[in-house]
Structure formats: structure tokens, C-alpha cells
Design a protein around this nucleic acid. Structure first.
Ligand SMILES: [Zn+2]
Ligand SMILES: [Zn+2]
Ligand SMILES: [Zn+2]
Ligand SMILES: [Zn+2]
Lengths: 118, 118
DNA sequence: CTGCGCATGTGATATTATAACATAACGTAG
DNA sequence: CTACGTTATGTTATAATATCACATGCGCAG
């Protein structure tokens, strides 16, 4: 965990909601000035590899993860109004899987309204 | 259903697997010449609105849909080796949903190996 | 010291998607 | 028929997202 990566993680955590790569980049630039797209994408890739971040596929955005994913992938509940994300896991085995399909990675994202915003 | 939209749908069906918007565009151009990005994106938006196509979020690609989605969203099983997509539905209500969360739309994509490619 | 592996810096470019405005096509009220 | 509103399409440009390719720095094994 290098300073650069730690910094990116800190920004993700601070955001507290899905944040776009280029918004991260802007924040980094405002402190560092030298940050460029590969800087942030590399750090995000690293953080995702080690399980400290997720990409929210349908938003092209990224979030920090403080969960344990031993038991399976993340399941995200994303409020379209306030932007909050509630991450759950232990996402169950796909029951409708075709015969013989071997799942390596699942993307599960639910979009809607959180309890507060209904 | 206009000729343009029908043509885009036909190309999606013919592809038989997830296809990128700009690949569609290339195919359209090879026949029409005048096609441009908004042409294809508008048609895709229309087809998705009426339920004849889906976006595969984690691939930024699109597929035709011949299913009935009365009972819920699509659940995609995508083979990383051969590119085939098996679409299921009746995807179950999220069981881990936070209290009070009201889901409007779900993205469920499983990546792995299909039976043939294992 | 030297060579190697990995992280980062840097400039350019590729890929994906939308904005903004113009034109056409089509039905309907008058 | 003509004028108008609405929807679809054409066209130009640009925004937003992501990667490539190559250079540099940095820590450590030999
Ligand atoms: Zn997580
Ligand atoms: Zn909310
Ligand atoms: Zn479908
Ligand atoms: Zn396969």
C-alpha cells in the first residue's frame, strides 16, 4: 500500500458514495497537480484487485469497500435520489444458472429508492 | 418500429452475442454510410425502452432480448471464453435488501465459463 | 555497483456516449 | 390543402471514460 494508493482509497472513503474516476482525478490534482488518468485508474485497479474498492458498473463509478468478501461478491443497493449505496454480501448462488455454468464473478446492482428517500 | 430501429435490432439479433455500439455503427455504415453515433445510441435507447434489448453493463455492450420481462429483470450468464450469453429471468427479489429499500431496476450479470467452455 | 521488478510520471490516443441544433416525416385541426 | 405539433432522423461537435506506450524512479537481490 503506497502513499498514492492510500490517498486514492482515502478519497473514496471520504466521498462516501460512488465517485467517478475523473472526479477523483480532479481532487487529486487540486492537491498534487501532477495526477493524470493512468494514475487514478492504476490505483483503482489495485484497490479493486485487493478488494478495497468496487466499481459500480452501471454508473461508471467507484466505491470503497470495508467488507469481507470471502463468502461471495458484493450486492449493491443504490439510491437514485440521494446516491447512497448500501453494500451487502453473501450474495446467494445464482439459482437460475444454466446447467454447467461456472460463475467467476457476479455484478449485482439494485437501483431504486432508499428508505429515507421514499 | 421504424426501419432504422428494426435494422439495429436485426443487427443485434444477428450478432448473437453482446455487441458494442461502435461495432454496430460500423456495420450500419458499411450499408448506409450516413450512420453516426447518435443514430445507433438512439435506436438502442428505444429498443431498451421497449424491452427488445439490454445493455450488458460490465461490457458496455448490447444484446437483443426475446424474453418477457413481466416478472422481473434479466439475469445474464456471460461466458468469458466464447462470449455467449444465456439470459434468464424471473430474477428473484433481492433478499438482502436493506429495510425499506424499493428496487426499481436491477443489474445482474454473472461472468464465468459456460458448460461448453469449461 | 548492476540488474531486475514494480510503482509512478507523462504524453498521446482509444473508446464510449451525449449535447445541440437542423431537417424530415407524419398525422391532425382548421 | 395548409399550418402546426410531435416524433424521428441527420449532422457537427464535444464530453466522459479508459487505455497504451514509453520514460523515470526506487528498493532490493546478487
Ligand atoms: Zn465489497
Ligand atoms: Zn436515498
Ligand atoms: Zn431480456
Ligand atoms: Zn463459453
Amino acid at each position: 500500500m503506497t502513499p498514492l494508493r492510500r490517498n486514492v482509497l482515502a478519497l473514496l472513503v471520504r466521498a462516501g458514495e460512488p465517485i467517478k474516476a475523473y472526479d477523483l482525478l480532479d481532487q487529486m490534482r487540486s492537491e498534487d497537480g501532477s495526477a493524470k488518468p493512468p494514475t487514478v485508474y492504476r490505483s483503482l485497479d489495485f484497490l479493486m484487485d485487493v478488494g478495497l474498492a468496487h466499481k459500480v458498473e452501471a454508473l461508471n463509478a467507484y466505491i470503497a469497500c470495508a467488507h469481507c468478501h470471502d463468502k461471495g461478491g458484493a450486492e449493491l443497493y443504490i439510491c437514485g435520489k440521494c446516491g447512497s449505496v448500501d453494500e451487502r454480501h453473501g450474495a446467494p448462488e445464482p439459482r437460475n444458472a444454466p446447467d454447467g455454468f461456472e460463475t467467476e464473478r457476479s455484478v449485482v446492482e439494485h437501483y431504486g429508492l432508499c428508505a429515507k428517500c421514499r
